[in-house]
Amino acid sequence: MDIRLDGITHAYDDFEVLRDISLDIASGQIVCIVGPSGCGKSTLLRFIGGLERPNAGRVLQIGAPPPDSLNPLTYIFQDFALLPWRTVAGNISLVLEDHGIRNAAAQEIIADVLARTKLSDFSGALPKQLSGGMKQRVAIARALAVRPAVMLMDEPLSALDAQTRELLMDDLVDLWTRQPFTAVYVTHNLAEAVRLGHKVVVLSRRPGQIREIVSIDTPLGERAFGDAELDRHQKHLWQLMRDEARAADAELIHG
């Protein structure tokens, strides 16, 4: 299943946030969206997942989602959004219960996704007992449990420290290499974008418009730390972002 954004424009009252965004998200690809703070990245992601409606433009699903997908468009949130009163296994079973998957069937799925996120030993733990990195892995496990066609990730690693972030990026690359998934990955961290993105979409300052789409051809599994090609991409992205950030600052000064 592909996703197509067709001329998305949105304003909150008179406050224009996004202007004419058109974008294709191909199946099996990770599309990273970067842009200055407040340019409408999270808003765009809410449109893609159907949590909010844009004033103009459409979000289209092209092709049917895989028949076994329980929740085709699935979010992973920056602040994990785990229910603190449920155990790790309980948090995953939460999203299965409404699909009538219980008991043995649920246990099987839970065991599988916990194994894939290396959490098998923690199925009985409460969120308060877990580190930030582990909480986000639980959230990833929960997302995998509903077999999404597209994962919508809003700065999923921003609440974590640098080392944990590196480890989790490796985990995501592993997961993708074993079974490619489609994802829209919002971040303001360019290192994450060049590490995980097949395409990196650079948005301008508010109102967010697409400034440039950078394709990175190096396969995900081969993107090593300090790769010259990736560095070049990252420098280029930084150049674009810096211009936008400067212009945004200047706008503030001149009102």
């Binding site: 949590l51 929740n71 468009l73 979010y75 949130f77 999203v95």
Partner: peptide, 12 residues
């Protein structure tokens, strides 16, 4: 955000 999460997973 927890309610938003529930909605995003299609909970009734």
């Amino acid at each position: 955000t927890l309610i938003r999460m529930g909605q995003s997973f299609g909970l009734s």
